[in-house]
Design a protein around this nucleic acid. Structure first.
Lengths: 119, 119
DNA sequence: GTCTGTATGTTCAGTCATTGAACAGCAGTA
DNA sequence: TACTGCTGTTCAATGACTGAACATACAGAC
């Protein structure tokens, strides 16, 4: 396995997509809130956010208005928006394949259970 | 997280089930063949096989007999057979839930792609 | 101004599952 | 015997991930 891109590429994938999708709708979320929403650790969110900023898909805006402390606003860049959609297309294909596999496995499990409980 | 059972329990799960299901049909498979079939490493297969033998769900035929082949035949014990079916039932439930989630996510992806490509 | 509390982003040593190359033993063959 | 090939077994290394601890900086009270 040779690496054509930076090491993040391997880790990223779905995590990056989910991060972008969530931030597009709620850019005011803190990293801790993002972590909880996505069900991953704070460290991972931080790692991914930095990777996305590095790539130029995300921009960490200056301070958040209102009463909060030192929080950023994570805005998707135009390129980030395009990439997010491209990722959605790829994920759709992948998910459809997973769906087919799952349907087959469910059928198999049903057959197996049925077979083993017959007199 | 306290442990009520041995550490394997955490690891095992689906890997154990898939191993039992495969060995039930082809007990003559070697650990290397099992690894390739299941798409996991040799080390993991060895680890799981040992755990299953330990639990008494699997019996390695002709264990340490000097006048026989080095290769084992991995036979499911009666208990192993029962446990395998019980696991199948649990997996069916889990897979059905995964299926529902997947259907929803596919719908979401489709909507997102559609929305972002409109005029 | 200073202090204090609090919410933030950042770090990094540790955990865990997993890998696969290397090892050791046995059967068959020349 | 020596060699080849397949077997199960081991274990150091890897990589993803965690979350407690840290450093920073604003808000509000004084």
């Amino acid at each position: 396995m040779t690496e054509h891109t930076d090491p993040n590429q391997r880790v990223a994938d779905e995590a990056h997509y989910r991060l972008l999708a969530l931030l597009e709708k709620e850019p005011q979320l803190s990293q801790r809130e993002l972590a909880e929403r996505l069900g991953v650790s704070l460290g991972k969110v931080n790692y991914c956010v930095r990777a996305l900023v590095e790539k130029g898909w995300l921009k960490a805006g200056n301070f958040r208005r209102s009463n909060n402390k030192r929080a950023y606003i994570y805005q998707l860049t135009p390129r980030g928006l395009r990439e997010k959609t491209a990722m959605a297309v790829r994920f759709l294909r992948r998910k459809e394949a997973e769906h087919d596999a799952l349907v087959r496995e469910i059928a198999r499990l049903r057959a197996e259970i049925k077979g083993s409980t017959e007199s």
